[in-house]
Computed example of a mutant assay.
Amino acid sequence: MDHEMLKEARDERGWTQATLAARLGVSQGYVALLESGRRKPADALRRRLARVLQLPATSLPTTAGRSTVDADALAAELADLGYPGFSHLRKGRPRRNPGTLLLDALAAEALDPRTAEALPWLLLTFPDLDWDWLLPQVKQRDLQNRLGYVVSLARNVAHLQGLDVALVLEAREALLERSRLVREDVFGRSSLTDAERRWLRANRPPDAAHWNILSDLRPESLVYGA
């Protein structure tokens, strides 16, 4: 969330700074400081701003992720961000920043296959997430290969559907390429038998092989209907 976004969102609604201040419960002078960039909103105020101004979920606070990730919680959070595959779970709960949700999912020891399939959708829907925050978090946890694979899947889906976001994702993929790890990793599964590992090495798609990921998830299988 930057100060220009705040001013643009307020102007779009035809509100004065005093009107926004009253809705937020702060002073008009404080709104002026926020819009000039001389003050940064605290996390609680960022959530209020996102709700009041109907800002995208990428404007919500980012956090370092949870120590444990509940599969049902991930599915519900994806639903509340608009993921069509979990539309039956939408209940109007407070949204989470998609970057934080993505970090949690990448760090999970195991993912429901349906949740793993949803991660490229996050990047297609929120390409403007805070990469300056996400990339260091991913590298600290040695998750760059998992993220690289998800970006590759999203980029290929974008190409298949003729979406302009493919160019943005190509640039992100190039950044991750610099820190690609040699060690083998899995995507969405906690453990594999030796037979499963051998099968995946022989049958995984080229992007999975490039990122040293054992997975058979392919972009052509990812259909995100409304």
Score class of each variant (00 low, 15 high):
222 L>T: 14
51 R>P: 02
191 S>W: 08
7 K>S: 11
49 L>F: 09
19 T>A: 15
46 R>G: 00
131 W>M: 07
193 T>V: 10
92 G>C: 09
179 S>K: 01
40 K>H: 07
103 L>I: 11
179 S>F: 11
54 Q>R: 08
17 Q>T: 12
118 A>T: 07
200 L>N: 01
50 A>H: 10
102 L>G: 13
27 S>T: 10
208 A>I: 12
102 L>Q: 11
155 R>P: 04
149 Y>R: 03
50 A>V: 11
98 P>N: 12
151 V>K: 06
31 V>R: 00
37 G>P: 05
218 R>P: 10
192 L>D: 02
195 A>D: 14
219 P>V: 04
28 Q>P: 10
213 I>F: 02
22 A>H: 00
133 W>I: 00
42 A>R: 15
74 L>R: 05
70 D>V: 07
105 A>Q: 02
138 V>K: 01
66 R>P: 06
173 E>T: 05
176 L>G: 15
1 M>T: 02
108 A>E: 07
203 N>M: 14
52 V>S: 04
34 L>Q: 11
32 A>N: 07
93 R>K: 03
123 L>F: 04
218 R>K: 12
11 D>T: 08
109 E>V: 01
175 L>D: 06
131 W>Y: 06
77 E>P: 03
73 A>F: 14
77 E>F: 02
65 G>Y: 08
150 V>M: 09
132 D>E: 15
22 A>L: 05
189 R>Q: 14
225 G>R: 00
84 P>K: 09
187 F>N: 04
33 L>Q: 09
174 A>L: 01
4 E>W: 13
44 A>S: 12
10 R>G: 14
148 G>I: 00
170 E>G: 11
161 Q>C: 00
180 R>C: 13
28 Q>F: 06
92 G>S: 11
217 L>G: 03
135 L>Y: 03
86 F>G: 13
145 N>P: 07
165 V>L: 10
84 P>M: 10
171 A>E: 15
93 R>W: 13
28 Q>V: 12
80 D>R: 04
110 A>M: 05
133 W>R: 02
127 P>H: 01
123 L>V: 05
171 A>S: 06
144 Q>S: 15
216 D>N: 14
14 G>F: 13
184 E>S: 10
118 A>D: 05
30 Y>H: 09
209 A>I: 09
101 L>I: 04
28 Q>T: 11
55 L>I: 05
126 F>S: 00
158 A>K: 10
64 A>H: 06
85 G>Y: 15
108 A>V: 04
4 E>G: 10
81 L>F: 12
161 Q>V: 00
174 A>E: 05
135 L>W: 02
194 D>W: 14
97 N>T: 04
135 L>D: 05
168 V>A: 07
93 R>H: 08
219 P>C: 08
145 N>R: 03
147 L>S: 13
138 V>A: 04
69 V>S: 08
23 R>D: 14
172 R>Y: 13
61 P>C: 07
